[in-house]
Structures are given as C-alpha cells and as structure tokens.
Design a protein around this nucleic acid. Structure first.
Length: 586
RNA sequence: GGAGGCGUGGUGUAGUGGUUAACAUAUGUGCCUGUCACGCACAAGACCGCGGGUUCGAUUCCCGUCGCCUCCGCCA
C-alpha cells in the first residue's frame, strides 16, 4: 500500500484506508483508548487505538520519536473531539494496524517540546533539532526562496554557471581559507571569498547574464549573522548600467520575499551613502526607526560648551538626535549608553532633556536661555523628550549618532511594524586604512568609479564615489554590488592607487588584465547574502537557524568535531609541518 | 585580540555560605475508554562544567580554565 502524508488528511478523505509512516510525536495513553500523533514532513495526524484492536499491545509500548507504519481508516472525529489547532484536527485514523519500523532512545532534543534546548545541545544533536517544526519551516522556506531565485533568473535569461572552489589567494579582502596542494609542494589553493573574478571573466567570455547559488568562504570571526561558509546568490550582467542592475535586483527581491508572503512596492527607496550617513548615521540604516539626525550648525556659536567649540574649531560638525520620551532616562541610564559610543572617541553621551521644570541634562547649562526654544524646535523636542547633541569630526559623529539612534529604538520600542527596504548608492570608492597605511577599496578593487569623479582619482582619491550599491533591509545589508571596471588602463590606475605595483598587479591579477585586452564588455552585478535574507524572512534571530549544519561562534562543528587533527601521513603527503605545540590527545 | 552573559538530573528552569539541592518535562512502573502540552500515583535520575583559592564549611564568594551565546575589533 502506498504511503501517504500525515498532514494532508482532511474530512474529504473519510472512509479511505490509508498507510502512514512517520515519527511518534506524542502518545496519550488513557489505559483503555490510546491516542498517538504521527508526524512526517507534511504535518501531524492523530491515530486512535481501542483496547479491542490488535494493535493495542504494540501501541502501549510506543515512545516519542519511534518510527511506525500505520494502516488505518480515516474517519471524522466525534463532535467535541475535534482539534481546531491542527489542519488534520477534524479527522483521525481508526481501526489501525501498527508496525514498529525503528525504535528511539529518549531524545536529548524533543521535537514535540516547546522548550528550545541550549545551543550546544542543539548543535550536538542537530539531526534532532532539525526535526523541530520551526527548523523544518525555516529550511523549507529556504528551499522555496532558492527555487524562486532559479525560476526568476532562468526566466530572465540568466545562465547558472559554476566556478572553482579551489582557486588562488588574492590580496585585498578578508582572510582566505587555504588548501595545501599535494602535487605542488608548498603551494596553496584558496577557497573563494566570492566568485568575483570568475564571473567577470564569464562576462568577457560572452555569457552576458550569469548567476550562481554559490558557497563562499571567509576566515573571519563569526557573528549571529556571519558564518565562515555562507551562500550567495551571485549575479553578473554585461552591457548594463547601474539602473539595469538595480532594476533586476528589485524584481528578484520582490519575487523572493513573496515566498514569505511579503509584498513589495517597486521601485524601492534610495539613499546615497552621504545621505544615509548624515540622516541615519549608518550605511545600512534601519528605516523602521522614525528618528533622524539633525544638523545643528546654526547653534554652533551659541552653545557654551568647550567641547563643542573645540570640535568646531577643528572643522567638525554639530549634530543632534531626539530621544522620544527620553526625559525619563536617569543620569545613570545615559551613562550606560556611553559604552556603545566609546569607540568613536566619546566618553559620555551629552544630552538635554525637556522636563516639566525646564531643560535638564548634562548639556543644559551650555544652552543659553535665548536659544532654548529654537534649539528644542530644531530637534523636534516635545515635553518629556530628550536629545543627544554631539560635536566632532563628521564621520565618527555620524556613526555615534547612528548607534544611539538604534539604542533609542531599542529602549523606547520605536521600530514601526513591517519591513523597510532601501538602496544605498554612491559609496566612496576607497577609504583610508590606518593599519595598511594606504587607501583600500571599500567594495573591491574592480569597482568602477563614478564617471564624473574619474578625473579626480589621483588628486582626491578618498573623495571619489563608486558605482557601488547595497540593498538594506531593516538595518541589514542583504545584497551588494557594483558596476565593474572593464577598461584595462583604468583598472591599472586603481591598482596603482591601492599601492599595488605594476609587477604585483600582473602577478596577482594578470589573468584579469589580460582578459580585458580582448574585448571586455561593460558589466556589473550584485550578490545577495542568501542565508541572511532567509534569516530575515523567517524572523530568525541567527543565521544558524536557517543553515542545516552551522558552526559555533568559534568555528567548530559540534556534530562532526571539525576542525580535527589529521594523521602525520596526511601532513607528509601535503608537505606540511604543524608549528604550534598542541594539547595532548584526550 | 578585547568586553559581557550563561553553565544545576536526559531536557528546560528555580535556589542557597550549612537544604534530604526544588519545580516542570522526559524516563520506569502502576491506574485511567475521547485525549490532543491528557490526567493521577509511585520510583529512579545531579559528585550544581572543570581546576585551584578563601572559609570550620563552597553548588553559592574569589581566581583560572573549558564550553555555548552576544557585542567591539575583524568581515574588499
């Protein structure tokens, strides 16, 4: 008899004889009549065993997570015995024959429980954790978004092409995972941080529209939304400009989020990088938060605070941000916020609060009475509100206000319901790296400068904008891309600005420069952080919740025990010696 | 590299400088014929992550260490 799905049975099936095979979700043994819930991927269905049934003997032994095969007759439940919480709650399986397919120990992660075990237990027993409904739902949505990606891009004329996983390490970018070569002693492959160069070569090769669902590897520290291996939807197009790429990406995004039931109105909102920084203090602003940074330079002269005057004398800016209801915060609570902005060179959060008895706060004395009303009006302060006012160099000031903006949003629950997408465009091409002592690419070295800024490349490299863009969802970067350089001389200029000698450039990227000598089309693209997008669509708190077998924060896999020691024979074959003294084997 | 949080029966939690270490659930046994997080009774199950220190006495306080998580740095 053919196996059917437990979750699919409905009143219309009443009277049919069916066979279900699945896991025992729960057993309710009343001594006489016994109920058990059978679970498979499709859902749950209740079966009933009466004392007179032949199956009664076996049924009494069933435990959670055993696998059983059940043959039974679908019947409508009695009046008052229906369960509106289950899709199958109007029917049940009666007159059953039972066969135990597979027994189970008492499981450390109980899929039928509402308690979520400790992360370490979940990861150690991931195969059980994945049985939980939440994880089944998350990975199912992941699948559907993936299939929607392929449908949409295939229909749009894109070819899904694969690129190497064993490739060469390149300068710039994040730390590479290295793979030692057996056949080339002392040489290493690198796992790709992204297929960037290969997809550009595919454009030179004339494929015109490429995409790939591709695993990428970056050997950096982990976060709730960062794993060392992750999946990108990688896209590249020839003979396009920025508008073409954004338009394609918007259409794709609409199709993908529709899988989660989200509706998206196009075109999406846009901000330039400069606007995003000035108004929200972030290059990935969460637009659900209604607060905006206010420029207060008009008040620069009238504020009587030494730090303001010295900051402005040094060419700094004066900006403020309202904290709705912030007058209720105590001095101590303001002090607690200061830890979040220490890294921007600020020791405390200067603030004013509009209380019933007038202006209070650490900065209140600096505000002359004559300026009070105008200042409060500029900041949009109402009775009971507060505001922070920060003076200093533009970038750290903006970033600090951006951090406080999110802190206010947390503390005062300011995020509007729903979801907000926004493009951030016109990123700087390069930024200064103190560590490297030189300019480094903000996006990557193949990013095309904005045409109107190309002339300034050598004169003011840090002021040059790029044809680079990020797609931001609720304060998370979910995609990023750029128009690429396809002109060999321009690419060489960029390499030079990045401190790469002609010889190094030829050595590391010669294959790309060579390719550009043979009719390279203008091209550009974008890559979506697939795991992160699915995480947000699921409402999950961590990227781990949408990856079947993720790593811990220290990059280990608690299920397999990776990374692990290898034998001396393996090391010898790879021409490797291990340098660090290691703990003795346990 | 840095900061913080957590670690107590299988699982989720409570709690305390001197307790028989509590509760729920899972487990075992028994009872129970309409439950659906079934119910009831009984039982078993924890050297309170590990090591050291303070103390008459440490699961509790301190130091170190390990594990998990979060954040900063890092992530073109």
């Amino acid at each position: 008899m053919k196996r059917e799905s437990a979750g699919s049975l409905r009143p219309a099936d009443a009277g049919r004889r069916v066979r279900l095979v699945g896991w025992i979700h729960r057993v309710r043994d009343h001594g006489g009549v016994l109920f058990f819930d059978l679970r498979d991927r499709s859902g749950i269905c209740q079966a009933v065993v009466s004392p007179s049934d032949a199956a009664a003997g076996i049924a009494g032994k069933l435990r959670a997570e055993w696998i059983v095969a059940v043959e039974g007759t679908v019947r409508l439940r009695q009046e008052g015995a229906r369960n509106p919480k289950l899709p199958t709650g109007d029917v049940e399986l009666g007159d059953v024959a039972l066969e135990v397919v597979s027994e189970s120990d008492a499981p450390p992660v109980l899929p039928s429980s509402t308690d979520v075990p400790d992360e370490a237990v979940r990861l150690r027993y991931r195969f059980l954790d994945l049985r939980r409904e939440e994880m089944q739902r998350n990975l199912t949505l992941r699948h559907r978004v993936l299939q929607a990606t392929r449908r949409y891009l295939d229909a749009g004329g894109f070819l899904e092409l694969e690129t190497p996983m064993l490739t060469r390490s390149t300068p710039e970018g994040s730390r590479d995972f290295l793979v030692p070569s057996r056949l080339q002693p002392g040489a290493f492959y690198a796992l790709p941080q992204s297929p960037q160069l290969f997809k550009q070569l595919l454009m030179v090769s004339g494929f015109e529209r490429y995409f790939q669902v591709v695993r990428c590897f970056r050997d950096e520290d982990l976060r709730a939304d960062r794993q060392p291996e992750f999946t990108q939807i990688d896209i590249e197009m020839s003979f396009v400009d920025q508008e073409d790429v954004l338009s394609l990406a918007e259409g794709l995004t609409r199709a993908l989020v529709a899988e989660a039931g989200w509706e998206l109105a196009l075109p999406l909102q846009r901000l330039t990088y400069a606007e995003a920084m000035a108004r929200y203090g972030s290059d990935k602003p969460d637009l659900r938060v209604p607060l905006e940074i206010v420029d207060l330079s008009a008040f620069a002269a009238s504020l009587d605070a030494p730090f303001v005057q010295s900051a402005l004398a040094g060419g700094g800016v004066l900006r403020g941000l309202r904290a709705p209801g912030g007058a209720s915060l105590s001095r101590k609570q303001w002090d607690e916020l200061s830890g979040q902005i220490e890294r921007f060179g600020l020791r405390s959060v200067p603030y004013i609060a509009l209380a019933e008895d007038g202006l209070r706060g650490s900065l209140a004395k600096a505000v002359p009475p004559a300026s009070q009303e105008a200042l409060c009006q500029a900041l949009g302060l109402e009775q009971g509100d507060a505001a922070t006012i920060i003076a200093g160099p533009e970038e750290p000031t903006s970033l600090a206000l951006g951090v406080l903006r999110l802190a206010f949003a947390d503390r005062f629950s300011l995020r509007a319901p729903g979801h907000r997408f926004v493009w951030v465009t016109d990123f700087p091409l390069m930024e200064w790296s103190d560590e490297e002592g030189r300019a480094v690419s903000r996006h990557h070295p193949f990013t095309h400068p904005s045409p109107e800024d190309v002339d300034r490349l050598e004169a003011e490299p840090l002021a040059v904008r790029a044809q680079a863009y990020d797609l931001v969802l609720d304060g998370n970067e979910i995609a990023g891309g750029s128009i690429r350089i396809h002109e060999r001389p321009l690419q060489e200029r960029i390499f030079r600005l990045l401190g790469l000698s002609a010889q190094e450039a030829q050595e590391k990227f010669g294959f790309l420069l060579d390719a550009f000598r043979f009719g390279a089309p203008p091209h550009g693209g974008i890559a979506f952080g697939f795991d992160r997008l699915v995480m947000l669509l699921c409402g999950a708190p961590s990227i781990r919740d949408v990856i079947a077998f993720p790593k811990t924060a220290k990059g280990t896999d608690l299920l397999t025990g990776a990374p692990a020691d290898v034998s001396q024979v393996q090391l010898d074959e790879l021409h490797l010696g291990v340098k660090a003294a290691k703990e003795p084997e346990r």
